[in-house]
């Protein structure tokens, strides 16, 4: 980030990790993020087993239909369509093999606004999977409860909570907010009580993080997400815990969200518990 590049990568990092683990892939192997726009793939040549995890999407594979959270094998002449279903915003396709994608700064992650990195998948584009394998494993992947949308997220006040009155901080912690349609990989604007900073402030630009809740001069809060700008001059009233951001990203526009404020010490303790839960799940799901 010191060169202006956010980490980018999947909006729901846990679902992405699950899709890779279901195939026995190394963590972080390149995959495809599918938004509610959906995706259709045709297998032109060969065969490959793939895993889909994240959100409640609908898969159509030939005459068969499944929910996301499924491992299946796609063979030459077959197609797979991924369409939005009952819940969630993002789902992940990972392949038993290596999806060929450009590498920038040692990563195949894509920075959406610039197209730097692995790149967006475009209609008509051919994808190549090197060392494509067909695995014996097929069928559903268990969807853990923590992979569902998270309507209550934990946050630590600051780093500019001092610019807001006690009443405003109380509103932030106690009132419900809604996600709006101003939602992309860079961030989502919230609708709810206005959080007016006490003075018209423009702080010298400073680093911001995935999960920063920044408040513009008109009192509107925006949560910064995977492709966020790396610096900004708006005050941040609070910052959402890293562990809660995957579930937050699966909320849809107009869904409701509340913030539960916790101390920095509690936040670290939660991060450690959350990481252990995910690790235990991945260890169980890993294909031997």
């Amino acid at each position: 980030m010191r060169f202006g590049v956010p980490a980018s990568g999947p909006m729901d990092r846990k679902a992405f990790a699950i899709a890779n683990a279901a195939l026995g892939n190394p963590p972080g192997a390149a995959g495809i993020e599918v938004s509610r726009g959906g995706l259709t793939l045709e297998c032109l040549e060969g065969a490959v087993t793939l895993a889909v995890a994240g959100g409640g999407f609908i898969l159509r594979h030939g005459a068969q239909s499944f929910g996301s959270w499924h491992v299946l094998t796609l063979r030459a002449g077959q197609s797979l369509s991924v369409r939005p279903g009952p819940w969630g915003c993002w789902t992940y396709l990972c392949f038993a093999g290596q999806l060929q994608a450009p590498v920038w700064l040692g990563s195949t992650a894509t920075h959406g606004p610039s197209g730097l990195g692995g790149g967006r998948v475009m209609p008509g584009q051919d994808l190549t999977i090197a060392d494509a394998r067909v695995l014996a494993r097929e069928g559903p992947i268990p969807c853990p409860v923590w992979a569902r949308p998270r309507a209550m997220v934990h946050a630590v006040a600051g780093p500019q909570d001092r610019f807001f009155s006690d009443e405003t901080l109380e509103d932030f912690a106690s009132q419900a907010f809604h996600l709006t349609d101003s939602y992309d990989r860079m961030g989502v604007r919230l609708r709810g009580p206005l959080l007016h900073p006490q003075a018209a402030l423009s702080i010298p630009s400073e680093a911001i993080l995935r999960g920063s809740v920044q408040v513009s001069g008109d009192g509107v809060a925006t949560v910064l997400l995977a492709d966020h700008q790396t610096t900004g001059g708006y005050p941040k009233i609070a910052t959402i815990l890293f562990d809660d951001l995957d579930g937050f990203a699966q909320l849809r526009p107009h869904d409701r969200v509340r913030f539960r404020m916790i101390s920095a010490e509690e936040a670290v303790a939660r991060a450690r518990r959350g990481a252990k839960v995910v690790q235990d799940y991945l260890a169980r799901s890993h294909v031997a």
């Binding site: 980030m1 010191r2 630009s205 993080l209 890293f242 920095a264 450690r272």
Partner: peptide, 22 residues
């Protein structure tokens, strides 16, 4: 994990599984 220098401050990003703020 990383440091990000800005005009008047430095953000120090760390792995909470290995250390903490204090």
């Amino acid at each position: 994990r990383e440091t990000i220098p800005a005009f008047v401050n430095l953000l120090v990003d760390f792995d909470p599984l290995l250390t903490d703020h204090a």
